[in-house]
C-alpha cells in the first residue's frame, strides 16, 4: 500500500509541477507584451551573455568541425568516398551538431548561471524585495533572460556552423591533403538555405527551452544552499533532456 501511495505522490508532484511550468510560460507571454518593458535591462543582459559565451561557442565549433572531418574520413575512405567529407561536415554541422552542441554548451554555461543567480536572489529575499519595489519579476528577471537567449542562440549557432566548417577545412586541407579551393567550393555548393534555416529554427527553440527552464528552476527553488545547488542541476539536466527530445521532433519536421 505504501508503495502505491509513493507512486501517487510522485505523480501528483510531477503533474502539479508541469501545471505550474505551463502557467509560468503563459505568464511569460502575458508580461512580454505588457507596457513595462525594460529595454536597457534587456539589452544589457543580451550583451552580457553574448560576449561571455563567444569563447565557449568558438571552441565548440572548431573542435566539432575538426573531429567531424577526421571521423568522416575514417568511414568514407573505406569505400573511396572521401570527396563527400566537405558535404558531410557542413550538413551535419548546420542541421544537427551546431544547434544541439551549442544548446547543450549554452545550457551548461548560461542556463546554470541563470538558475543559480535567480535561486540566490530568492534565498536572499531579493525577489520579495522586487515585489515591494513595485517591480514585476517577470518583466525584470524572466523577460530579459528568455528574450536574450532565444535571440542569441541562432547567432551562436551561425558562428558554430562557420567556425566548424573552418575547423573541418583546416583538418581536411592540412592533415588529410584536400585541395583547399575544392573543399570550400564543395561546401558552398552543397549547402542549401533550408539546411541552414532548419538549424536556426532549432536554435530558437533550444534558446527558449534553456532560458525558460532555467528561470523556472531558479524562481521555484527550495531555500538554502541545497536549493540553489538543486536549481542549477535541475536547470541543466531538464534543459538538456528537452533539447535532445525536441531535437528529434524538429528533425522529423524537416526530414
Amino acid at each position: 500500500m505504501k508503495f502505491i501511495e509513493r507512486i501517487g505522490e510522485v505523480l501528483i508532484k510531477l503533474f502539479s509541477n508541469l501545471g505550474k511550468f505551463i502557467l509560468f510560460i503563459s505568464f511569460f507571454f502575458k508580461y512580454l507584451f505588457s507596457p513595462k518593458f525594460y529595454f536597457k535591462n534587456n539589452l544589457q543582459y543580451f550583451l552580457t551573455i553574448f560576449i561571455s559565451s563567444i569563447p565557449i561557442v568558438a571552441l565548440t565549433g572548431i573542435f566539432s568541425g575538426m573531429v567531424l572531418a577526421l571521423q568522416s574520413y575514417t568511414g568514407f575512405s573505406r569505400f573511396s568516398a572521401e570527396s563527400a567529407i566537405p558535404n558531410i561536415v557542413v550538413l551535419t554541422l548546420t542541421r544537427e551538431l551546431g544547434p544541439v552542441l551549442t544548446g547543450l554548451m549554452i545550457s551548461a554555461r548560461v542556463g546554470s548561471s541563470i538558475a543559480a543567480e535567480i535561486a540566490t536572489m530568492r534565498v536572499t529575499e531579493q525577489i520579495d524585495a522586487l515585489k515591494t519595489l513595485n517591480t514585476n519579476y517577470y518583466n525584470y528577471l524572466v523577460t530579459p533572460r528568455v528574450l536574450s537567449l532565444t535571440l542569441a542562440l541562432p547567432i551562436f549557432v551561425t558562428l558554430v556552423d562557420f567556425i566548424g566548417v573552418m575547423g573541418g577545412y583546416i583538418v581536411s586541407v592540412h592533415r588529410l591533403g584536400f585541395n583547399d579551393n575544392l573543399y570550400l567550393l564543395n561546401t558552398i555548393d552543397f549547402l542549401s538555405l533550408g539546411d541552414y534555416l532548419s538549424g536556426i529554427l532549432k536554435a530558437f527553440v533550444f534558446g527558449f527551452i534553456i532560458s525558460i527552464v532555467s528561470c523556472y528552476c531558479g524562481l521555484f527553488s527550495d531555500k538554502g544552499a541545497f536549493g540553489v545547488g538543486s536549481a542549477t542541476t535541475n536547470a541543466v539536466v531538464i534543459s538538456s533532456i528537452l533539447i535532445l527530445s525536441s531535437n528529434y521532433f524538429l528533425t522529423e519536421l524537416f526530414f
Partner: peptide
C-alpha cells in the same frame, strides 16, 4: 495600495 508600504529585509536584500 501597497505602494504606501515599504520593507527592510532581514539581510538587506540588496541587488
Amino acid at each position: 495600495d501597497i505602494d504606501k508600504f515599504s520593507m527592510l529585509f532581514q539581510y538587506g536584500a540588496l541587488f
